[in-house]
Design a protein around this nucleic acid. Structure first.
Lengths: 248, 248
DNA sequence: GTCTATAAGATGATAGAC
DNA sequence: GTCTATCATCTTATAGAC
């Protein structure tokens, strides 16, 4: 095994060598903490914010723990104290918001089904699925923007992107697929999977917000203009899915 | 400027410090080269193949020049001799095939227009645009698979992805947009741009081939099954575009 | 909890021999 | 052209003082 391969393998397991140390718990649900605990919790969050920002911009390998600690205004030793390895920090940072998205997506889809049990539409299902991410509120929040850019990057990363996305988002994606099956009666199951991949790709490229469409359109379209592209994406994906699934 | 920023800046310009050294030319068009030249040319190509593979798998920052040289079976010094900086090698490797794609796309679109000047369809335009990349021949070629994975990764990279894609692919994308405008008379220009972004995102997620859909569908769909997803993507994107552009 | 100091090794790039 | 040897710097991670 070359040193490079060792580095990759170590990144995957999140352990340097054979170490199996434990790190301090989050304690976020603990209301009676001392003031010192609150300050420590703030440091932890600042580190996660910094990590989110730099990972989103430069990727896992393009970001150093030094840069993260520097942006958070603390020493690198604290990163290892709170999170363990760099890769564990990466996963923790991503998980912080992906769990929120998952919870809200499940809720949103459940709510949609409850209100339209006998009149499910592809548009309705997709909108319910997209709702948690594609809002002005979230697009205006730097932290959420970073999370979105990170998700987009991960989703097209061959090395471990597929696995990470599967791990973090599979649950709610299956919820969506179930609703789509009901909204597209008689469709081939494989066609629904393909349409989900098409939709997911479009969504991720929008979340990446690289500014490519701004340049391409000479300013006519803006990457962050969620109010404009959201209804168009829904209409596009729904019409496309119906066509592929033979429902004209 | 922190060392990290300096590293990024240096990556962007492709120059370490103030060096402005020149590297040997490609000589690929020179038929009367000696045998020594031919061997050197082969070394150069082996380095590009190795770089393509590793950059596609681990990204720009996740790949080391040592790993590339090792895979190519030569010393790292040769990388700098032939290509200059790591970033210049990256750009050269990507450009090697993106120019081919661009040339073939221009040709394909031109050919389509010539044969259907008064019966242009959205399906036809998109198919002509996709043709150079989405073929069994290219999907079976490891080098092309690596190039595709690399393109997908770059397209969702916030740091410089938008610029690189703009730089390498803008020409032919504008060709496609022109045909789409003619195939969608009366459509809002901005809507056509948005639809292109939706299509581009879908395409890139397919090129990434992370195996996510394989896992998600339990093997029902396969990432590399271009014959299956290509007609579906065309139908999906064309129907979606017509819906968004108000042509029912 | 947070910092200083430092280990132990990897990294991009170059000079110079052949 | 290609390799050996090397530089200066940066990397993740830990031990231990406070």
């Amino acid at each position: 095994m070359t040193s490079f391969q060792a580095r990759i393998a170590s990144s995957k397991t999140g352990n340097a060598g054979t170490r199996a140390r434990r790190h301090p718990p989050k304690k976020e649900g603990k209301p009676g903490g001392s003031q010192r605990d609150a300050l420590a919790q703030e440091t932890r969050e600042r580190l996660l914010d910094a990590a989110e920002e730099l990972f989103a911009t430069h990727g896992l390998y393009g970001t150093t723990v030094r840069a993260i600690a520097g942006l958070a205004g603390v020493d690198t030793a604290l990163i290892h104290y709170y999170f363990g390895t760099k890769r564990e920090l990466f996963d923790t940072a991503f998980l912080r918001r992906s769990t929120v998205v998952n919870r809200e997506r499940t809720e949103s889809l459940k709510h949609y089904i409850a209100g339209h049990a006998d009149s499910l539409t592809v548009e309705g299902a997709i909108e319910a699925f997209l709702e948690p991410l594609l809002t002005r509120e979230r697009f205006d929040d730097p932290g959420w923007r970073n999370h979105c850019a990170l998700a987009a990057q991960i989703s097209n990363t061959p090395e471990w992107g597929g696995e990470v996305m599967t791990e973090h988002y599979d649950g709610t994606v299956r919820d969506l697929l179930e609703v789509l099956k009901r909204a597209l009666p008689g469709a081939e199951e494989a066609d629904i999977y393909w349409c989900y991949q098409f939709l997911s790709g479009s969504l991720m490229s929008l979340l990446a917000a690289t500014g490519r469409i701004d340049r391409l359109s000479g300013g006519l379209c803006r990457s962050g203009d969620v109010e404009t592209f959201k209804p168009r994406l829904i209409q596009y994906a729904a019409s496309g899915a119906r066509a592929v699934c033979g429902l004209i």
